[in-house]
Design a protein around this nucleic acid. Structure first.
Lengths: 341, 341
DNA sequence: TTGAAAGCGATACCAT
DNA sequence: ATGGTATCGCTTTCAA
């Protein structure tokens, strides 16, 4: 009776360049030269052929980790991500970024934060020796963390967010501007008692906080009341909020984004309020759905960098970390008046 | 005059375990033992301390690639992704999956297809020696590709899609069921001339095709006309389609999902058609927005596996590739009648 | 309890 | 035109 387990017939080890070399009757060096088309080294055509055939026959696939160990650097771009429900705008951006990075031959590694603190996270990231880290802001980045990453070989550490992090390239994505635009529009139309929706969904604070702040700054010094308003993604929550809005006599609400705006507007209308007659509602992100609502939703259009653009920046910094430093502008915002205000 | 370039002041090399060993006055082996808390080896407390301090002082971070090279396996789960606008449901699923995998200590690598064919892609993936590949269906997977991946060390190759791939674990995510549910509901309500929206956005065919097919199969053998309808995510496209729907006298439309349904419904209403009086509209995915529309949108609720669930399956297969094989069910669907039909 | 040394797979220098 | 070989950073027997 055989003692070997029956199923796995051979469990062949993965073929290495040494196997290819053996089969082709050449050295490992030659295999490397041929397979990587090193121009500085001339290999005779017959040899090339034998090597190629051997590789083919064994279905040889080079081992990326071994390669980058030897090379001393990876092509990994690390993208810390959070487990939170972002808007469609953000998703599109992330997709674009990944695509563009891949096209530049980087390997995108998503790394979920898992509730580590900033320095633990930086350490975990550093283990992968990423050539670049692009933090969209979900997990904070400390100067210490940036330093650690750079010392572990990261040539570009880029953060998107309101606050520049020392040592990192910071792309200003100032969400306050969104709030400012919204408030500017509402004030111009004469509203004076403005609610600002702050989603209860966790993880959105990094957007909602600055947007609220932006409204406040636009209202500062004028005879205007600004009230933060909690809203979750459910009809019940919206219903409760609609009641509150009416009781407090708010004449306008900046609803964080178009999706929350839709939710709130429906609740207001169901409660018998006229929009914008009794209460104006303003969204943000300029989603298609805003144009489909009645009244059409006034919103804030956000010009976000394209993923393509950011990927190019990453690549530029990777190639020349000492290049033009610092602080790039990134986000434009602009009110789009429609019928809900 | 110094010949070294002026700027990078020290460009300290990344500290290795050898550096730690040197600083602590011990061997590399000891460093490894201490830092990895190997229970089989007893190291004196003073030594442990010295090693830990040395590591701390140098800000030593182990090199993941070197480690997995030595170990002979990675913890990489490869997630092929496409550059296409998926619905929110799908995004949520993907996020969950990543989160859950990370929690199980896997490293998630997103790999954009870049228009390679199936075998090129498989080869590129194999270079990373992923321990698992989870293909959500964007890039096809051939038996040959699966074989290559397995031979390069992948212990789990999992595909979500209608067609089982030989050699891979296939999780049936049969989108036809969605179409069947929708059609079932519409037929039950007596509609007989049914349009089915097929989004023009590229990359969605992998969903839209099966959904259409599902409608057809439900209608087969009955006195029902089924017509595919092209729709893009713009108001103009919707307007044109609304006209078409009325001209052709369709009495119901299954609009692919709630977002397209919203778009079409608005166009129909703007064109003066009553919903559902003149034309019924049905969505899918049971998004919140469907409940906010008037009339409330009838839809198809989709029970998709949670990312958590799939991550666990991945982990199970990785640990025991010879385990219960094959074909797991995955998706349930169920019509939710509301007011638009 | 600790250290010496053999690899893991690929590459690049230096010989031949 | 090729081959030998040191090396990247780490883990893990095997000895001491």
């Amino acid at each position: 009776m055989s003692q070997t387990p029956p199923r796995p017939p051979a469990e062949r080890p993965v073929p290495t360049s040494a196997d290819v070399a053996r089969l082709a009757g050449v050295s490992r060096a030659t295999v490397s030269y041929v397979l990587n088309d090193i121009p500085a080294v001339r290999i005779s055509e017959p040899t090339r052929l034998r090597v190629r055939q051997a590789a083919e026959e064994l279905a040889y696939v080079p081992h990326a980790a071994a390669r980058s160990l030897r090379a001393g650097r990876t092509r990994i771009v690390l993208l810390p991500t959070a487990h939170i429900p972002m808007g469609p705008l953000y998703h599109r951006f992330l997709n674009e970024l990944q695509w563009a990075l891949r096209r530049l031959d980087y390997t995108v590694v998503q790394y979920a934060g898992m509730g580590m603190d900033a320095d633990e996270a930086a350490r975990a990231w550093a283990e992968l020796r990423p050539v670049a880290v692009v933090s969209l802001g979900e997990t904070a980045l400390t100067p210490h963390g940036v330093d650690l990453l750079k010392r572990s070989g990261a040539r570009a550490v880029i953060t998107l967010g309101p606050h520049p992090v020392p040592g990192a390239h910071t792309l200003a994505m100032d969400q306050r501007e969104v709030g400012r635009c919204a408030a500017g529009h509402l004030l111009e139309r004469g509203y004076r008692h403005i609610g600002v929706v702050v989603p209860t969904e966790p993880g959105l604070d990094m957007f909602s906080g600055p947007r609220l702040e932006g409204v406040r700054s636009a209202a500062a010094g004028r005879d205007v009341v600004v009230e933060p308003l909690s809203l979750g993604q459910t009809e019940e929550s919206a219903e409760a909020l609609a009641r509150q809005v009416r009781e407090r006599g708010l004449d306008a609400v900046f609803a964080y984004n178009d999706e929350y705006a839709m939710l709130l507007m429906r609740a207001l209308q169901d409660a018998g309020a006229a929009v914008p007659g009794d209460t104006a509602v303003m969204g943000a992100d300029d989603l298609l759905l805003g144009r489909l609502l009645r009244p059409r939703l006034s919103t804030v259009e956000i010009d976000m960098t394209t993923g393509q653009h950011l990927a190019e920046l990453v690549d530029r910094v990777v190639r020349d970390p000492a290049g033009p430093p610092g602080h790039h502008g990134l986000m434009g915002a602009r009110a789009i008046p429609r019928d809900s205000t």
